[in-house]
Design a protein around this nucleic acid. Structure first.
Lengths: 93, 93
DNA sequence: TGATGAATATTGGGTAACCGATAAATATAA
DNA sequence: TTATATTTATCGGTTACCCAATATTCATCA
């Protein structure tokens, strides 16, 4: 499975402000493996240039309004695609 | 979001046996857009060569035992990565 | 039977997503 | 300060993922 990284960065930042290292740890928890810095920082950079996130002087990232809207529609699509996620979690027990 | 296609093919086939056209329609329901034949059939072919699915003479695809096991671990990973999917569905309401 | 549409399949890319290696900046401690 | 660890960042490259276009097979019906 690829492609969920950007989405999950936005999602994580919607829950709480984080720096790059924290985001990395968050992914390590979720996936089991730690994403490479070559994965996380270019992704953050692109989200920043798109105006979906901002950084403060402490290198802490947070969602912008646009980012929140973007996340909301990505979230809707996610839930539509995986509408039966609950049954999936039953299946793999 | 990319990368979920193979996973969802396996998932769909675990629910019921299907031919290519039915799988295509299933994706159209989930994503809103219909995947191209150049997407769906190469994916099926690869899953077949990996021994995860089989085809009968009516071109109906179904999971093999290996496919079911593969799906199960993919499913586990999915649920781990998106453990808070429920909160996501709340968020985008 | 021939014709028309649907389903199946192949081919040849394009590109987004991600990684490894490396380097630079920043913090922490001795 | 020096040294050590952590965090941030860049670069080049690879590959997984998916598509558009086209071809072929199959089904249905006039």
């Amino acid at each position: 499975m690829k492609g969920y990284l950007t989405y999950l960065i936005l999602w994580n930042l919607s829950q709480t402000r984080m720096n790059g290292a924290q985001i990395t740890r968050e992914f390590e928890k979720r996936r089991g493996t730690k994403p490479s810095p070559g994965t996380i920082y270019p992704a953050l950079k692109e989200l920043k240039t798109k105006g979906l996130i901002t950084v403060d002087d402490k290198k802490t990232y947070s969602l912008t309004i646009d980012g929140e809207n973007e996340l909301k529609s990505a979230c809707k699509l996610f839930c539509k695609i995986f509408y039966d996620a609950k049954e999936m979690s039953e299946f793999c027990k």
